[in-house]
Every structure is written in C-alpha cells, then in structure tokens.
C-alpha cells in the first residue's frame, strides 16, 4: 500500500476512477498458442496488464538434484520486463519476483497431475510486458490456460482474481491507483470447478467481515474469468470443426 493521498478513488455514486462499479472486472482477453516453439502458450490482456506465458515440458529435470522421484517439479518464472512499469525496472530476479514465482509454482502444482511425471520438470515462463496491478493473478490465470493448451493433465483450471479495500469499501480487481493508494489487497487463486484455494496473499488489513465479502466477490468473478479461459482454449477448435463439419 502506498502513502495516503487525497485522491478520491470512489465517487458518491460508487463509481471508481476508471468508471467501473465496485464488483466489476477490467476487460480480459486471452489468446492461446501464440508461440510456435513452446509446448503451450498464452497471452493475456487484463486491463492494462499484458503478459505472455510459455510452457515447456514435462521434460527431465535438470540440474539433477532438483528431480523428485515421485513427482514432477513445476518451475515457474515470473519476470517483469524493464519497460513494463513507468520507471525502468532493473532487469533480473529480485525479491518480489522470486516470491511470486514461488507462489505461482505452488498454485499450479495443485492443479497439475504432477505424480504422473516422476523426475520431470515443467517450465512455466511468465513474462510481464506491461504491468497495471494484479500481474500475479493475471499471470497465473494465463499460465493455467497455457498448461492446458500444452496437453498436460490437470485436475482443474486455475483462476486468479483480486479484491481489496479502497476508501473503506470492498472492491473487485484493483486497478493501479487503487492498489497504490487503497487500504488492502487480496489476490487469490482458485480451482475453477472445485473452488479450492491454491494461492492467497494479503497486503494491508481487512476485518473478518470484509474478508468474507472480498472472498465472496472473488468467487463470483472467478466464474466469469473461467468462461473467458474456456472460450480462449476451445474457440478455435470449435470454429474449425464447424467449418469442416463435425462437433
């Protein structure tokens, strides 16, 4: 959370800075198979976020000491481009991106059937080209689409979404200003069908009631985001099948 400021983030009618209502998502667009060389890939535009994800594997894990005899290891790498933020970001992993890589790896591990691939690794490269708040959950949402597109067996798709507290109100999907000047931020990763939580972090403070309200909002939005994921995956196959007969 940034320093307090006198910008009014929500007006009297409950409309936010970018014109959204309290429980409205920013526009989301997902595309699959954007990279030829990767086994699976996805590109997501979530508000001002632009993120590219490439998935490689499963393949034998190297260096060898990282291998697990019972299951595959997920090696997600979250990386922000130097030009992704207003002020140039110093390239390379820093404390923040190492943390995000870790939580995304663990979230994906819950969805992917890792026990089917002993000794293997699955690489997930998440490259943030343009950042605008909520990159970790946008990256996670796209990563799960890319993993599914790679033909890797999964229990469920992972949907990411945030909620937070801005000007004393609980709002869905924080924008950049709301993230910087709001009072709390709660990113969550959920398995789409079963509703299990695979990622949860919180920055700032929420009361129990506020937390419940935020969670309910996220669960509701997860259904909408999941529909976008499904359409991104199935859309082009369905179109080709319609054109050529079948389905």
């Amino acid at each position: 959370m940034g320093t307090a400021s006198d910008i009014k983030l929500i007006d009297e009618k409950g409309i936010r800075l970018d014109g959204r209502s309290l429980s409205e998502l920013r526009p989301i667009k997902i595309e699959t198979d954007v990279l030829e060389r990767a086994d699976g890939s996805a590109y997501i535009e979530w508000g001002g976020n632009k993120i590219m994800v490439a998935v490689y594997g499963p393949r034998e894990a190297y260096p060898k000491h990282t291998q697990d005899i019972d299951k595959a290891v997920i090696k997600a790498r979250y990386n922000m481009a130097a030009f992704s933020v207003d002020e140039r970001k110093r390239p390379g992993p820093d404390r923040r991106s190492v943390e995000i890589s870790k939580v995304i790896s663990e979230a994906l591990q819950c969805a992917i059937m890792v026990e089917q691939f002993p000794r293997a690794q699955i690489d997930v490269y998440i490259e943030v080209l343009q950042a605008d708040a909520g990159t970790r959950i946008a990256g996670l949402t796209a990563a799960s689409v890319a993993v599914a597109a790679a033909g890797i067996p999964m229990r469920d798709l992972v949907v990411g979404c945030t909620a937070g507290k801005v000007d004393g109100k609980i709002v869905l999907d924080l924008g950049k200003e709301e993230d910087n000047f709001g009072q709390a931020d709660l990113p969550m990763g959920i398995l789409a069908k079963s509703g299990k939580i695979v990622l949860m972090q919180m920055d700032g403070d929420l009361t129990t009631e506020e937390f419940d309200e935020a969670t309910a909002m996220i669960y509701d939005a997860a259904k909408r985001i999941n529909d976008i994921q499904r359409e991104a995956l199935a859309g082009k196959y369905r179109a080709l099948a319609m054109e050529r007969g079948g389905e």
């Binding site: 599914a148 798709l157 079963s194 995956l233 199935a234 389905e247």
Partner: peptide, 9 residues
Amino acid sequence: TKQIVMPGD
C-alpha cells in the same frame, strides 16, 4: 460424438 472438454469438466 465429439464434445470439447477442459480439465475438471
């Protein structure tokens, strides 16, 4: 029948 499904369906 060729129905398209996602993980978890």
